[in-house]
Nucleic acid binder design. Sequence first.
DNA 1: GTGAAAGCGCTAACAG
DNA 2: CTGTTAGCGCTTTCAC
Lengths: 345, 345
Amino acid sequence: MTEAVSRPTLEAVAARAGVSRATVSRVVNGGDGVREPLVERVRRAVEELGYVPNQAARSLVTKRHDAVAVVIAEPEARVFTDPFFALQLRGISKELTAHDNQLVLMLTEGRADHARVARYLAGGHVDGALVFSLHLDDPLPALIRSAGVPTVFGGRPDWSDGTPGPLYVDSDNRGGAREAVRHLVALGRTRIAHITGALDQTSAVDRLDGYRDVVGGGAAELVAESDFTSAGGERAMRELLARHPDVDAVFAANDLSALGALRVLREQGRRVPEDVAVIGFDDVLPVAEEARPPLTTVRQDIEEMGRLMVRLLLGGTGRARADGPAAESPAGVILPTTLIRRASA
Amino acid sequence: MTEAVSRPTLEAVAARAGVSRATVSRVVNGGDGVREPLVERVRRAVEELGYVPNQAARSLVTKRHDAVAVVIAEPEARVFTDPFFALQLRGISKELTAHDNQLVLMLTEGRADHARVARYLAGGHVDGALVFSLHLDDPLPALIRSAGVPTVFGGRPDWSDGTPGPLYVDSDNRGGAREAVRHLVALGRTRIAHITGALDQTSAVDRLDGYRDVVGGGAAELVAESDFTSAGGERAMRELLARHPDVDAVFAANDLSALGALRVLREQGRRVPEDVAVIGFDDVLPVAEEARPPLTTVRQDIEEMGRLMVRLLLGGTGRARADGPAAESPAGVILPTTLIRRASA
DNA sequence: GTGAAAGCGCTAACAG
DNA sequence: CTGTTAGCGCTTTCAC
C-alpha cells in the first residue's frame, strides 16, 4: 500500500500560484471577489497539485459539516429488504450528492443504539438528520428531538405529545387508499376486503383509515391484519377467503402483500380480476409489473420522497433558522399518489 | 427549533475541573497516566457540562477520522432489494459501531459518480473504504486503488492486472456449489441442472465453476443463464423444462432464483423433491424457510462477512502498515459455507 | 481586490 | 504525573 503521503495544503497551492492563502480559499469557495487572472492561476495550481480541501479543518472554523445522518431503526431486518427503503435511500443519496453532502448511515436496533445515536447527533457532527421511525411506540423521535439537530422524518411520526409538529415527508396514504377502494366500488364490487400493513406504523393505519372512509359506512368491514410481507399477505388472504368466501375485491396495504394474495387466489382457483379484483400500494417495480396478472396499484413517488426530505432539511438549515420562526413552514409535506391501472382491477 | 448553541469545549471542562486542557484530553481518551482523583473530577465535569469532543478538531491533529466509507455500485436497483446486501450492511454497521466508527454510505451509478467517489476517498476524509464491486468490468476498483486508501472488497473483485491481490472477503462460492451438487448426486439424481446468477459477477461465475467441477465431467451440462432474481429463476426453469423435460434436480445460484424455479415446477405439476430436487444458495431468511417446500440451500454467514470486512480494514489501518510489508497477510479471506438440508432436496 | 493575522478545538511533544 | 506550548489546515475579519 502506498503510504498515505500528506496531501497538499492551501499553503502549498498559495505558494505555487504566488498568492496568499486567503485568496486560494476564496477561489476554492466560489471565487467571488477575486480577479479573473488570479482565479485562473489558482485553479491551475489546484489542478496540478491535486489539492482537496481538508474537511476537518474547514468544519472546525465554519461549524458546518456537509454531512447528514440517516437514521434507520430496524427492529426487524425487514426494513432493508423492502424495496421501499432502498428507493428512498437512493433518492436521499442522489439529492445529498447534488448538495455535496455526505450520507452518514446509522442503523439502530435497541435502546443501547438509541443512546449512541442521540449522543452522536447532539455532538454536532452532522448538519442534520433524516429519520425513519417505523413504529408507533418508538422512543427514538423524542430522543432525537432533544438532541436539537435539524431533523426531517420519513413518514409521519407518531407525535403524541402536544409539541409543534416535526418536519416530515409522507405520501397521501389515506387519500391513495380511498382512491383505490373507490375504484373497486366503481367496478361494482360490493364485498371489498382490506389486507392491512403492520398496524404499528402510521402508513398502515392511514391506509386502513382510507379504506374505512369509503367502505366503513356502507358494506361491512372485511379486514385482515397483516404486516407488509408477501407471506403475511398469503396468510391474510387465506383467512379472508375462509371467513368470507364471497369476497370479490381486495385492497392490500402494499404490493408485496398483494402479491401474496394473488398467489393464494390463483392457488384456490379464483380468477383475478374476474372473481376477485386486487389492488396494491407502492407501485414498486418490478413487483407490480411482473405480478400475474400485472398489479393495479397506488403509486407513490418513493425516490422523490427521499429527495424531498433532503431539500427540506438542507433548505431548513440556515435558511429557516435565519428567517425567523418556523410558524409559517408546514409541519409535513404530503406527496400525492396516483392509481396505476393494470390488469388486476 | 433550539438554536444550536456552542457546545462546551475542552477548555470549559478543564476550567470546571480545575485542571489543564491536556489532562482533560487524557481522561477523555482513556485516562492512562492520570491519577484517580483527577480522573474522577474530570469525569464529573464532562458529565455536568455534557461535553462531547469535537471530532473535526480531533481529526485535524490526529489525521484519523473514525469513519469508513461503504461504496456500493448499483447500476441496477437490484443491489438493495437483495437481502444479501442488507445483511452485509448490517454486519458492517454493527462492527463499525463496536469500533466507534461512522459509516459513510456512497451509492454510485455511472461514471460521474466514480470520479466523485475517487475524489472523496483520495481527499482523505475517511480511514478506509469497504467496496462492493458487482460487475466484472467495473472501473471502480482500479480507481479506488489509485486513491491510495486502505480498502477491503466485498466479494472477490475481478483483478485482471498483475498487481498484488487486493484485500477481500468472500464466501466459498465454488466449494459451496460443489457441495450442493454432490448432495444432489448422492441423492441419485442424474440430470442435474444449474440456474446461474448474473455471470458478470464473480460469485455467479464461481458457483457455475463449482457446478461444473462435479457435473461437467460426467453428465452433460444443463445450464440456464439467469440473474439472481426470482423472475429470472422462473424464466430459466421454464427454459430448462422445455429443453430437458427429464431434468430431475436443479441447483440455483441463489435462493431467490430457486424460489422462482419452485413456482414454475409447482405450476407445471412437478413434485419437489420427488420429481425434481431443488437447492438454492445464501440461506436468506425468511425466503428459504418460508418457501414451499422449505428450501435446502447453501448457507453463507452474510452478516459475518460484513463484520469481517470491517475487522480486516480496521486491523489493517495502522497495524499492517506499521508492521511491515503485507506480504504475509492473505489477499482474500474466504468464509466456509454449509449445506442446510430442508425439504426441497 | 488582496494579504496578514487571529483563531476554530484538539492532541502531542516537551518540560517540570 | 501534570501543565505549557505549538501547531493541525482552514476561514474570516481587518487593514492596506
